[in-house]
Design a protein around this nucleic acid. Structure first.
Lengths: 156, 156
DNA sequence: GATGTGATTTGGATTGAGTCTAAGTCTCTA
DNA sequence: TAGAGACTTAGACTCAATCCAAATCACATC
């Protein structure tokens, strides 16, 4: 499992390059949003990004955040993650990968794709092709302290 | 893959039994909602069930639908499915199983668990235990007619 | 059967994520 | 530097879902 580490600060030029590569015209707002998303490194919601982008002064309005995130998803620059239906999360990592969702803390972790492999997958319905495949492992914090201790020992 | 077939009509007694088995007190409203859900057989939303239950006359209010579905999920009578973040779907099938979601049609199909198997799964974070694991295969309708014909031949 | 109590349901208000709209602003090309 | 199309904005709006306080129900006990 890959800890969701915050990326290094990215240059605006580098980000503009990535947008261009996906066929997205660069604007000041789009660059700010993309920068916030990539530097977040985790799985921010639209709300999170709105706050992040505007934390010093109001620079991007709410509608633009949503429009832009949808655009980024459509163009394949980022990925959308639906773990619980109350909010959508976004993921700057578009390599195929899976997620672990901690129901207790709301934490969402990336799973290194190399740690998951399938022996068998079902046939797709006629006339359809696979768009993507995601595995979500829902976990809960262990309550019993002795369990935790045992886990610690096993995993270290 | 198992087609999501509508169940036969279920007796109220049989449903009351299932509620009781999960520690849920039977009330008229709960029985109606459970019946609608199990007979639906697919993956209705709260909205769908509200309409289903009230299609002849208004018998159950919206708040009760939501309260009851949450209760059913908490008690393990039914399962919640988050495929797209705009709405929650419910599934009367609580055997562990996976889903195929058709992005174009919004259709959600159950996947027979025997057709999916894992070779390798990631270690869980320390101090957590697995609550559940779900695989969602997103598919899209094939555009090219020749492709469809080819698929038909292969799969028949 | 009557009574009391805690659980359940109700309607209506409220929340909050996300979308829509129409007007204003920017960007890029010529 | 002008014009046109693309982009952004504020604010109204939608809609799933929740909250709340009052009304109703179910059920045990007398």
């Amino acid at each position: 499992m890959r800890p969701t580490t915050a990326q290094q600060t990215l240059s605006i030029t580098a980000i503009a390059e990535r947008l261009k590569h996906c066929g997205i015209a660069a604007t000041r707002q789009r660059l700010r949003i993309a920068k916030a998303l990539f530097e977040h490194g985790g799985h921010p919601s639209a709300q999170d990004l709105y706050q992040q982008v505007n934390h010093q002064q109001r620079t991007v309005c709410r509608a633009t955040i949503y429009n832009t995130l949808n655009l980024f998803v459509d163009k394949g620059l980022i990925q959308e993650v639906s773990v619980d239906s109350s909010q959508t999360f976004y993921d700057g990592n578009i390599d195929p990968h899976h997620h672990i969702f901690n129901v207790d803390t709301g934490e969402l972790l990336d799973v290194e794709p190399s740690t998951v492999s399938f022996k068998e997958l079902p046939p797709l319905p006629k006339g359809t092709r696979q768009e993507d495949i995601t595995l979500i492992i829902r976990v809960r914090n262990v309550q019993d302290k002795r369990w935790i201790a045992a886990e610690e020992k096993t995993l270290q």
